[in-house]
Nucleic acid binder design. Sequence first.
DNA 1: TTTTAGCACTCTCACCTTGAGAGTGCTAAT
DNA 2: ATTAGCACTCTCAAGGTGAGAGTGCTAAAA
Lengths: 344, 344
Amino acid sequence: MAELTERQRLILALIIREYIETAQPVGSESLQKRYQLDASPATIRNDMAALTEAGYLRQPHTSAGRVPTEEGYRYFVRQLMGHIDLPADTKRTITHQFYQVGYDPDRWMRLAASVLAQQAKAASLVTAPHVEQARFKHLELISTRGRQVLMVLVLAGGDVRQQMLTLAEPVTQEQLSAAANHLNQLLSGLAPEAISALTTPLDVLEQDLVRLIVEELRHASQLLGSEVYRDGLTHVLSQPEFSESESARKALRILEERPLLEDLLTRTLETTNVGGVQVLIGGEGTWEELRDCSMVLARYGAPGLATGALGVLGPIRMAYGRSISTVRFVAGLLSDLVVELHSE
Amino acid sequence: MAELTERQRLILALIIREYIETAQPVGSESLQKRYQLDASPATIRNDMAALTEAGYLRQPHTSAGRVPTEEGYRYFVRQLMGHIDLPADTKRTITHQFYQVGYDPDRWMRLAASVLAQQAKAASLVTAPHVEQARFKHLELISTRGRQVLMVLVLAGGDVRQQMLTLAEPVTQEQLSAAANHLNQLLSGLAPEAISALTTPLDVLEQDLVRLIVEELRHASQLLGSEVYRDGLTHVLSQPEFSESESARKALRILEERPLLEDLLTRTLETTNVGGVQVLIGGEGTWEELRDCSMVLARYGAPGLATGALGVLGPIRMAYGRSISTVRFVAGLLSDLVVELHSE
DNA sequence: TTTTAGCACTCTCACCTTGAGAGTGCTAAT
DNA sequence: ATTAGCACTCTCAAGGTGAGAGTGCTAAAA
């Protein structure tokens, strides 16, 4: 496959830009007119034929304009698009919104999903940050009724996990508090492995509690164990490629089915560093369900402490520039917030 | 409007049943054949004409079969349907699932949404229970960094709320624990009003904390302050009435836009007791957005303590029998769980 | 060698017509 | 009160048609 000439690259970029906007096949004459190109339609046609040959364009039928192929989009994203950034005032507005909701991780996530959806005009998803290496911070035991006890476990980073547990025999609140105090001193700042390795003698209640705590800490380290925030689902439906419900359903399923999403996120992002953005165009051969969709995904958080994932989902004909810059920016913002959360 | 004869009521019921299944207008002849009716097609036509006159049926065009009107569905739900219940083994299966996920309110909600969606083959929503009268149970203060303090507030019922706060000046963990201990003794079991009315002398830190606690307790009493769980959105898209994306978008918007949903739930359910089920057919003239949808909603929980809402959303041509029985049953189940949560 | 004008060709899409089919309402007979 | 018979209405799928957009090719021009 020969190298592309500069004009061919320009034409490819323009066709993609035009097609993203109009969702209509792009013809040689309209392209030349719209962008006041120096070359004549016939020249453009020759270049289009070359680009089709190279696999970057295709024709829906013999006599329609050209449409980008998935390879075309990939080339565009990698080589033609350049580094696009959100306008400074947009950034400022978003930042402002985050600082205005105050210190509330739950609302950060909701806001992040909302911002992503609105800016990229696509469906968005944000997973809550999960600690990569959960560390004990504080334990609280509250007696409720009979042998029922509410255990509140605070992790380093301020994550709070609660669990109800039923003891073998009734225990007074005083005994519970004493046990909690003891464990708080003993386990402070420890990771589950370190806790398991402890040799300090413990009574029966404390042993049970330690077992539960280790379990919870381990559980907290799983990606997607917690919540997934979604927004902008209606944007997906307003895209013409999802006008028939069958394709729209396939797209929504990706966001709705947890195991699917989990697989997708882990496999895509395990190799991605915080700060990097992954672009999945048309399933990339791996994900059948994504065949008609593209996703722009990123990882955010404090590496080694707590990370989460976020991204947008739209048709293959997606405004990649806008999506990528939005995802990158929001990921950066959330990273800052998470880092702040964990620095102590 | 004359009373309906017994046969007319039968015909209306059969037409609705048939239409719900096939989504096609129902004609006199096919109806007679399908259900082996004694009357001839001509007789059925006469009754159909009467039902159309009465406002329960209409014809999409001069020469198509009949389709139920919204009034027709209402009559059906109120007068014809009778009390339908889920099969005993379905109930058992569902109950089993709930007890299998263990003591985890978050997973209860997710499971409830999933069960509703699957059983009713519609989109479902579940709001987390909110305490009607929030009462203080336990406070925990954890120093993190400098003047940053994590406040963990446990409400009666086991609800846990966390908040980060920044103090005017640094305070040691010992001082924090002392303040927490003091407040725990002082405020145990109190509602926000009772706390505000207290005259016990407090130091500055404690005064600040009490103010925050009252605020949080008040906040906890708001409906929908917390999470909304959704599931089965793809079911909506598989209904033929939502095959064009425009109408599907309207339906999804109802579930996605929080203020809309909040208004809908509060206004519909404020008059509904726990145990009752509300059926909204085609917006009922009040909600423009719901014009092409129906909802089956219920309130669940422990009256006076904590309640939440749940329901399903589907096309007007909804299997009301199945939806209502499912919603009623799941609401009952969640109510039991919430009652258990609060009985102490 | 590259670019361009000219032109025949292809394919879609919107539009129209048409006939079969389903269902109705009316009338008159049972 | 019910029903058979019948003319009538309306939709919908199928087939035909022409305008329009866009192409590739060829040969001339730069």
